[in-house]
Amino acid sequence: MSMQVILAQALLGLNVGVFYAMLSLGLAVIFGLLNIINFAHGAMYMLGAFVALIGYSLLDDWFGISLQIGFWASLIVAPLFVGILGMIIERTMLKRLYELDHIYGLLLTFGITLILQGLFSNYFNISGTPYPGQPESLSGVVNLSFMYFPTYRLFAIVFSIVVCFATWFVIEHTRLGSRLRAGVENPTLTQAFGLNVPLMITLTFGFGCALAGLAGVLAAPIYSVSPLMGADLIIVVFAVVVIGGMGSIMGAILTGLALGLVEGITKVVYPPAASTVIFFLMVLVLLFRPAGLFGKER
């Protein structure tokens, strides 16, 4: 087994890992600040991809608007759309559940997932519609000496990592972030200082959803756009969050990237285990460090 093969699969693993990282980051932000287990996160990812697809090829057919939203514009439009939808869900539904047990939020968001998936399965085929809007400038191939790697995938890796660390920086190292964290730590006191805590919570939920939507747009040119694309991923992403530690921002990012790598390398070492290795690690972490690798015992 040559180094070349391991490197190649590791890079592909990293490619998957950035999606794990972006999704688990959103989940971690939402859980850390709102204490909600957002099961609709996979659906938001799926929605992001569909907004890109519909914006690119179906606006004219469906709504008679002769406008084409290209890939670059989708990187802004889709997260905005998904974020706003997230805020509407938070304002109208989730807000009422804060006083109740976690499980209610989980059930509600799970229900929302089923509705969204059902809706899209009705109009789109399950096995996926290719996204035609990948920009020409990213369609080439880069020679990395150990392998040829499509430019677009390289772009997706770099772009996602930048977004992840920017998010971490904002939450951990800016005034805005410190206010957010204060609002979570002690909402009453924070409100007494004149900060609008409910608004902050709504915006945070919207931001988490927008991150998922952004991941969806990035995924669209690589994987086909399908109603179940989120459902396939969300279970793994939950495992990532559990391994990283619920609520830890940096933990979610690093664990996501690392587990993508582990999965990729497993494909070289023992391919049949590739789809289960993450869950095996989850069991180990739960046995020896129940709060997760980066989490703190509460």
Partner: peptide, 13 residues
């Protein structure tokens, strides 16, 4: 399957 990349790399190696 939508992403054949890792299968293709296995085949390549």
């Amino acid at each position: 399957t939508t992403d054949f990349s890792s299968y293709l790399l296995q085949a390549q190696s």
